[in-house]
């Protein structure tokens, strides 16, 4: 089982992803430079686009990175059903590349927010949440200035209908309240997948919430779910 973590100029979360995969969940992992077309991409089981500010967030967050050569390989990989996880800026890149629908706008209150938040698992029948129970509340880290998810109404309707909304911001009891929405996202959306379920983007940082020393290990379940899915084992999902 092998993971690949992509590095763009300005990425900053790649080290955290690499560390968690290698040292916490003990799997093989490589760094992938964004200029490279990945010829052997099928030797990977999961590709991660990490957080940070690729290209300094110039033009629009994720816009320039989404045109990098590596994204061509990742699009083909995703079309064949390969698992792709976009975290924070990685989520922005997935949206800009068209692998996921919608866009992330500047936070409603303009502030860059670096804090813990809660998200509720809305769909546990995905490769990324198969070890969660439906409605489970995860306390996880977030850190972003552009996290306000937006998509036109018909897209939101489809996301709901197809079970593509994976996480919503919630309070500690799991209630979806406006007060628990840190950035003004439509319907408190914190993470979505594509229709097939193999491409997942989220504003939360599971890799910074995978060890108790960091105040939360509740993000680890996302990595455990990926491994479970790749092994053909899930606990609560299908």
């Amino acid at each position: 089982m092998k993971f690949g973590v992509v590095i763009f100029p300005g990425s900053s979360g790649e080290g955290d992803c690499f560390y968690v995969i290698k040292n916490i969940i003990n799997k093989e992992v490589d760094y992938i430079w964004h200029k490279d077309l990945i010829k052997d991409i099928d030797t990977y089981d999961c590709i991660i686009l990490p957080g940070g500010s690729s290209y300094g967030d110039y033009l629009r967050p994720g816009a320039i990175a989404s045109k990098s050569p590596v994204m061509e390989s990742i699009k083909e990989f995703a079309a064949r059903g390969g698992l792709v996880l976009g975290i924070c800026n990685g989520f922005q890149i997935l949206l800009e590349s068209g692998l996921l629908p919608g866009i992330l706008l500047q936070n409603e209150n303009i502030r860059f927010k670096c804090q813990y938040t809660q998200v509720r698992v809305e769909n546990n029948k995905t490769p990324f949440t198969g070890q969660c129970s439906k409605g489970q509340v995860l306390k996880v880290a977030m850190a972003h200035g552009y996290g306000r998810y937006y998509a036109p109404e018909d897209v939101i309707k489809d996301l709901n209908k197809n079970g593509q909304i994976i996480f919503r911001y919630c309070d500690a009891q799991g209630e979806i309240e406006i007060s628990a929405n840190p950035n003004g996202s439509v319907e408190n959306i914190a993470g979505i997948s594509n229709k097939k379920g193999n491409v997942f983007g989220t504003m939360i940082h599971p890799e910074r919430s995978s060890e108790e020393i960091l105040n939360s290990s509740q993000g680890r379940v996302i990595f455990d779910s990926i491994i479970g899915y790749l092994k053909g084992v899930t606990v609560n999902g299908k």
């Binding site: 033009l59 816009a63 320039i64 866009i103 937006y150």
Partner: peptide, 9 residues
């Protein structure tokens, strides 16, 4: 179309 504008927003 290719880069400068994101028509979603």
């Amino acid at each position: 179309d290719k880069l400068l504008i994101n028509p979603v927003m």
